[in-house]
Simulated scan of single mutants.
Amino acid sequence: MPQRRVITGRSQEPRQRFAEELRLLRAEKKVSLRQLGERLGWDWSLFGKMEKGQTIGSPEVVEALGLYYDCPLLLALWELAAADKTQFKEQYQRYMTLEAEAVSLWHFAVSVLPGLLQTPGYAREVLAAGGLKGKQLNQQVEARDSRRDLLEGENAPPFRTILSESVLRTRLRNMNEWRGQLQHLLDMSERPDVAIQILPFSAGPYGLDSTDVMFLRLTDGRTVAYTENAHRGELVTESADVERLQRVYDSLRDLALSPVESRKFVLRMLEEVPCEPST
């Protein structure tokens, strides 16, 4: 049996350490990324992103790499990298900076309204459902409410969002707050620089069925994307990756209701919400 190399851990940051180990293991194996992809049955570009620290991959991919490299500790390094939230926070902070500078924005939502369109009542209930409470909850609600300023003023960037019908079928528990949120959507849809479209259930299966995405058109002409699910977010800057996401987004736009029909859809939902006495 070949001697197994001890994991060095030259970097102290878990994700960087994991990426570094992947690069060293492949160098010792003397294989190219394309050869690695051919031998393990995955797109070789995935391994390139993992070695650059852009993604950590799935546990299935890492298990296959560990077997190929004869490095059983690789999965343990992956678990450390997956548990580390530092880089995700840094990516989100970078995204927020880019969002504030963007000249136009396009968005798709799977199950929750985009922060730019959330009322404080909606934000509070959604954040509380995620486990926040007390002072931390109040701070996050205030922070999310302040983001709506991005769509205010003469220099506000054009904003388009495509909402899966499931977003509007998931009501708040507080019916008065839910009515206020739906009315806010209607009010925002009247703005010339805001377009809201609904992707109905009748559209059938579609791409991005488990991922929210925001596209930012930047002042230098580039477009970047930020993808997010229930557990993590990722800033996507590689042009080929952004283009693939845009193609899926364009297909969703073709399936979605028009802004006019979407407004009628929201209005019908608003009419269905029962009124509750104010407390």
Rank of each mutant, 00 (worst) to 15 (best):
D241M: 04
L182Q: 04
L245A: 05
Y249R: 04
T97N: 09
F108M: 04
Q87Y: 11
L245G: 10
L216V: 10
S258G: 12
R268Y: 03
R160N: 07
S146K: 14
K89I: 09
L22M: 06
Q16I: 10
V61E: 06
V126D: 01
R10D: 12
G221M: 05
A240K: 11
S251L: 13
V126G: 01
N155W: 07
L216F: 12
T8R: 14
E142I: 08
L218C: 07
K49S: 13
R17Y: 00
A195Y: 01
E28V: 03
R4Q: 14
S239D: 13
E28N: 11
P14E: 04
F159V: 03
L77T: 02
V248H: 07
S166G: 12
V103M: 07
D84C: 10
P59R: 06
R5M: 09
L150T: 06
V167D: 10
Y69M: 05
A230N: 12
M175G: 00
E177H: 13
L172G: 02
N155A: 14
F159C: 04
P59D: 07
L25K: 02
G9D: 09
P114I: 05
G207E: 12
D145C: 06
M188Q: 14
L208F: 04
L252F: 11
I198P: 03
Q54W: 13
L73G: 13
L40H: 07
L67F: 01
D241F: 00
G130N: 12
L74Y: 07
P158V: 07
F47P: 05
R268D: 15
C275G: 05
T223E: 15
L267S: 15
C275V: 13
C71I: 00
L80I: 00
T211F: 02
M50R: 05
V213I: 15
A203P: 09
R179M: 08
L137I: 11
V213E: 02
L105P: 00
E165L: 07
G66M: 03
L168A: 06
V194P: 02
T161C: 14
D193G: 01
T211N: 03
E79S: 13
V126H: 02
V31C: 10
R160G: 01
Q140M: 12
A102R: 01
P2C: 00
E13T: 13
E238M: 10
G53D: 11
L245R: 02
E165W: 05
G207M: 04
Q3T: 14
D84V: 10
R222V: 02
A76M: 08
Q35N: 08
P205F: 07
T279A: 14
